[in-house]
């Protein structure tokens, strides 16, 4: 089985400060991996390394078997990134924003197909032709997901996707991720939401001070036990 996302001894230091200690991690198609940890634990650093926005100090990150640091443009074909706040052009409608995103990724869709993608990402049909200036965070996120669908991404990177979402939107988001996972997309997300992570993920990692201190399958324990485990690590 080949891995669509892989870290081999991936490490990042800023001067004396080790932002990420050597990380070994691999995800297969359809797996959802949640990275838990406090602010400053190195979650965003890890995501930025996979995106190629920063260069590793040693080790390497691979997307679809291609080394990120050497092919920063090529790997973007297989990868979609949804930041904590999805930013869109407020003067364009949801449909036009998606059209722009997919055009830049090299895909041309007609209006019907774009509409289909937005509906699949869970955007209400009456919102599709409204300007995104009036969208909520959840709605903008859905446009982002539709962008990932549009470019047929194999890997989806998410940075704190559920923070600031209301419970219903958060739940819809979890359902959407599972749907993507069933279609073979690998999902890697950094989150604070232990409950969502436990519910939606196949695997969970706990990160502290730049180090992956614990890794488990989400079936191994329930949410309460997971929270206890997490807090134990943080109290040390």
């Amino acid at each position: 089985m080949e891995f669509v996302l892989e870290a081999r001894g991936l490490c990042k230091s800023y001067l004396e400060n080790r932002a990420l200690k050597p990380l070994n991690l691999s995800l297969q198609q359809g797996e959802i991996f949640s990275l838990l940890g406090p602010n400053g634990a190195g979650k965003s650093t890890t995501i930025n390394l996979f995106l190629g926005f920063i260069k590793p100090s040693s080790g390497a990150a691979y997307i679809n078997g291609i080394e990120v640091a050497r092919n920063p443009v090529e790997i973007k074909r297989y990868l979609a990134y949804i930041p904590e706040q999805v930013v869109l052009y407020p003067n364009l409608t949801g449909l036009e924003n998606l059209s722009l995103l997919s055009c830049l990724a090299g895909y041309r869709y007609n209006k019907q197909e774009l509409r289909g993608l937005l509906m699949k990402a869970g955007l209400q049909s009456e919102a599709i032709d409204r300007y995104t200036g009036g969208y909520s965070k959840g709605m903008r996120q859905k446009v982002g997901i539709a962008g990932a669908l549009a470019k047929k991404a194999k890997v989806l990177l998410l940075d704190e996707p559920t923070s600031g979402l209301d419970p219903k939107a958060s739940n819809e988001f979890s359902v959407l991720l599972q749907q993507l996972s069933e279609e073979g997309t690998a999902v890697f997300m950094a989150t604070h939401d232990i409950f969502r992570a436990r519910e939606v993920s196949t695997r969970i990692g706990i990160m502290k001070a730049g180090e992956l201190v614990h890794e488990l399958r989400s079936g191994d324990m329930d949410a309460n036990e997971l929270e206890k485990l997490y807090l134990n690590y943080m109290h040390d």
Partner: peptide, 13 residues
């Protein structure tokens, strides 16, 4: 300011 530039750059432009 809106960070949309990241969208464009992360698409490989």
């Amino acid at each position: 300011e809106d960070a949309t530039i990241k969208n464009l750059l992360s698409q490989g432009m």
